[in-house]
Design a protein around this nucleic acid. Structure first.
Lengths: 89, 89
DNA sequence: AATATAATTAGATACACATCTAATTATCTA
DNA sequence: TAGATAATTAGATGTGTATCTAATTATATT
């Protein structure tokens, strides 16, 4: 199942907090870090997992790396979940 | 986060298959087992996780135990996911 | 009561994952 | 070109999880 990776990515509370941070706007890693009580290394790891699940994208700007939500994937997720439980097929 | 348990429960491919089985109708464990390539013990474990996440319910009927999907929780999940990504607190 | 059937529970194992510290890469500035 | 800042990568550790076999519980049948 392709949704497995997405669900696994969303299952961690720290990654949910990251997503919440990014709801309003894109942010550099250092800004995200201020909302979580983990090291930068651990945060980097979580961002990597979110990126591989295609839930966020990143771009470099100078020394900083900005992360933003991929809202299109969020839509696909909603569709997937709906289909998962809706009868028919 | 309360959604973490739900996401974790849905992240496993075998548990997704179980949910797919139960979409059409409730089923006894032995019937679910025919669709998965795992032992009954492992299946029991997966059903336990789905039940603790409130995604399924069970009832005994003679020697068999029937499992069924909790569709109301599926609706809550959809809401939760939508809120998770929709802008505005 | 003894046996068969349906499922769960116990115990063990192997692998994945969240986390940390320390080291490394990349960019900017003095 | 040093030195400082921003983030990732490497390596280690403890915990959690998916899986199995074997044992146990619960119900039905003979």
């Amino acid at each position: 199942m392709f949704l497995s990776q997405t669900f696994a990515a969303l299952a961690d509370p720290n990654r949910q907090k990251i997503i919440k941070c990014l709801k309003r706007s894109e942010l550099p890693v250092s800004a995200i870090a201020q909302n979580l009580d983990i090291t930068l290394a651990t945060l980097s790891h979580h961002l990597d997992i979110l990126r591989r699940a295609d839930l966020v994208s990143s771009r470099r700007e100078g020394r900083q790396i900005f992360y933003e939500l991929n809202l299109s994937v969020a839509d696909e997720l909603l569709e997937g979940v709906a289909k998962m439980f809706k009868t028919g097929k």
